[in-house]
Computed example of a mutant assay.
Amino acid sequence: MKNWHLALMGLAATAIFTIANGAELDQATKEDITRHRAMAQAHENAAKCLESGKSDAVCEKQLQVECKGLGIGKFCGMKHVH
């Protein structure tokens, strides 16, 4: 009985590992991942812009250009407090 349980647990672990690491992503998910990465890059560029000493208005305008078509609204899908 113990060997059967061990075998079953091993099979379950293998199945979970295979599903977690080998699952093929659908096209919509791949596109969503690409958009998230593009938005993250645009926000990183905005942070670097601010670090360079440029004004918030200049950096926000740059962010809006880089995020056009990616996020919802004029804040690239993200708004926070200043």
Score class of each variant (00 low, 15 high):
Met1Val: 15
Lys2Glu: 12
Trp4Ile: 15
His5Gln: 15
Leu6Thr: 11
Leu6Pro: 08
Leu6Trp: 09
Ala7Gln: 12
Ala7His: 10
Leu8Met: 07
Met9Lys: 05
Gly10Arg: 02
Gly10Glu: 02
Leu11Tyr: 10
Leu11His: 07
Leu11Cys: 06
Ala12Thr: 08
Ala12Cys: 09
Ala13Phe: 12
Ala13Tyr: 10
Thr14Trp: 11
Thr14Gln: 05
Ile19Glu: 03
Ala20Glu: 08
Ala20His: 06
Asn21Gly: 08
Asn21Met: 14
Gly22Phe: 02
Gly22Met: 03
Glu24Leu: 06
Leu25Ser: 02
Asp26Cys: 02
Asp26Asn: 09
Gln27Val: 05
Lys30Asn: 01
Glu31Lys: 06
Asp32Glu: 15
Asp32Cys: 05
Ile33Phe: 06
Ile33Asp: 05
Thr34Gln: 13
Thr34Glu: 14
Ala38Asp: 11
Ala38Asn: 13
Ala38Thr: 11
Ala38Ile: 14
Met39Val: 12
Ala40Ser: 12
Ala40Tyr: 12
Ala40Cys: 09
Ala42Tyr: 13
Ala42His: 10
His43Met: 15
Glu44Asp: 09
Glu44Gly: 11
Asn45Leu: 12
Asn45Asp: 12
Asn45Tyr: 12
Ala47Arg: 14
Lys48Asn: 14
Lys48Glu: 15
Cys49Glu: 07
Leu50Ser: 09
Leu50Arg: 13
Leu50Trp: 15
Glu51Thr: 08
Glu51Val: 04
Glu51Trp: 07
Ser52Tyr: 10
Ser52Trp: 06
Ser52His: 13
Asp56Met: 11
Ala57Leu: 05
Glu60His: 11
Gln64His: 06
Gln64Cys: 00
Gln64Ile: 03
Val65Asn: 03
Val65Pro: 00
Glu66Gly: 01
Cys67His: 02
Cys67Met: 01
Lys68His: 08
Gly69Trp: 05
Gly69Ser: 00
Leu70Pro: 06
Gly71Tyr: 00
Gly73Pro: 01
Gly73His: 04
Cys76Gly: 01
Cys76Met: 00
Lys79Thr: 05
Lys79Arg: 12
Lys79Met: 06
His80Ile: 02
His80Lys: 02
His80Gln: 02
His80Asp: 08
His80Ala: 03
Val81Lys: 14
Val81Cys: 11
His82Cys: 00
His82Ser: 01
